Simulated assay, not measured.
Amino acid sequence: MLKPEIKVLDVQGQYRIHTEFYRSDTAENTIILVNGSMATTASFAQTVKNLHPHLNVVLYDQPYAGKSKPHNQHQKMLTKELEAQMLLELIEHFSANYLMSFSWGGTAALTALACTPRRIEKAVISSFSPLINGPMRDYLERGRRCLADCNRTQVGNLVNDTLGKHLPSLFKRFNFKHVSSLAEHEYAQMHFHIEQVLTCDQPCLLDTASGIEIPVLFINGAWDEYTSASDAQHFVQSIENSQFVRLENTGHFLDMEHKSASHISKAAMLGFLQPAHAEHLAASR
């Protein structure tokens, strides 16, 4: 696979962010990808394969995570507003005109989009919902307890038994190893994030999203009971130019779950972001 251009950038005057830029000589557009919680740039390996070389692709790790972690001091928790401001700065730096988020990365992504960044023309929000339904509330409540206790085995098992239940066994092993070996400050950050989510009024994300004028595609897995396709459709109230795709036979982790899921996820994203190019690819098969 193509090696990315790696830079550590100073952002917001107080954080250092590890970035990876997958450049394509044939691409006219650049997309920036926003991680879910407890995830790193490595989580987007399959997504990069699906989008490159059709697009230049930018990945980054939050200050508390992944390869950004050694460059920061972790003295205070990051709010979704601060994560959104960092994202806006990275959008400008890389001249990104598309944005894609996964899972809880949708919170920072929608908060950033609500600031109407001048460069962003389209956005894809995957595996995200504005509602905390029963299964998600149960997951968050259980997560809050084992994160507060720093119980690594419980955290790893919880993610695999819920959001990751449809992942292949090999991915589950990788997932458990990653999630159960995070630093204490990463667990504290996730705990802080859960507290924010659980104390937020149900309509707050819909309020945040109101006024977003660019086209936004929401992608949810048909098997995903935590961020369900039906719950995601509540965004139509707030985002006039919204579209929705429900990927059959997929759960929360979409393109990571099996080859067919990867194929239909790629088709949905490129069909939305670059419809003419996607049609050309389909015709050439």
Rank of each mutant, 00 (worst) to 15 (best):
L147Q: 02
L147T: 04
D149M: 10
C150D: 09
C150A: 13
N151Y: 00
R152K: 05
T153H: 03
T153N: 00
Q154E: 12
Q154S: 14
G156Y: 00
G156K: 04
N157S: 05
L158T: 09
V159L: 08
V159Q: 03
N160S: 08
N160E: 01
D161R: 06
T162Q: 03
L163A: 07
H166W: 12
H166R: 10
P168F: 01
P168K: 00
S169E: 11
F171C: 08
F171K: 11
K172D: 04
K172R: 13
R173H: 06
F174Y: 14
N175D: 13
F176N: 06
K177E: 14
S180L: 09
S181K: 06
L182M: 09
L182E: 06
A183G: 04
A183R: 07
Q189S: 09
F192V: 10
H193C: 12
H193Q: 15
I194T: 11
I194L: 10
E195D: 15
E195V: 14
Q196G: 15
Q196P: 13
Q196N: 15
L198E: 10
T199Y: 09
D201A: 15
P203G: 12
L205I: 09
L205H: 12
L205D: 11
L206T: 06
S210N: 11
S210M: 13
G211S: 05
E213C: 09
E213T: 12
I214A: 05
V216C: 07
V216W: 08
A222D: 08
W223T: 07
D224T: 02
D224P: 02
E225R: 06
E225F: 02
E225M: 07
T227R: 03
T227S: 07
S230P: 04
S230H: 14
D231I: 13
H234S: 13
H234P: 00
V236A: 14
V236G: 02
Q237M: 08
S238W: 03
I239E: 03
I239D: 05
I239R: 05
E240M: 12
S242V: 04
S242W: 03
Q243E: 11
F244D: 01
V245C: 07
V245Y: 05
L247T: 05
L247C: 04
E248F: 10
E248H: 09
N249W: 09
T250N: 05
G251F: 00
G251Q: 02
F253V: 06
L254G: 03
L254N: 00
K259L: 11
K259R: 14
K259H: 14
A261F: 05
S262G: 02
S262N: 11
S262E: 15
I264Q: 15
S265E: 08
K266H: 12
A267L: 13
A268N: 05
M269F: 13
L270P: 13
G271A: 10
L273S: 10
Q274Y: 02
Q274E: 15
P275I: 03
A278R: 08
E279Q: 10
H280S: 12
L281Y: 13
A282Y: 14
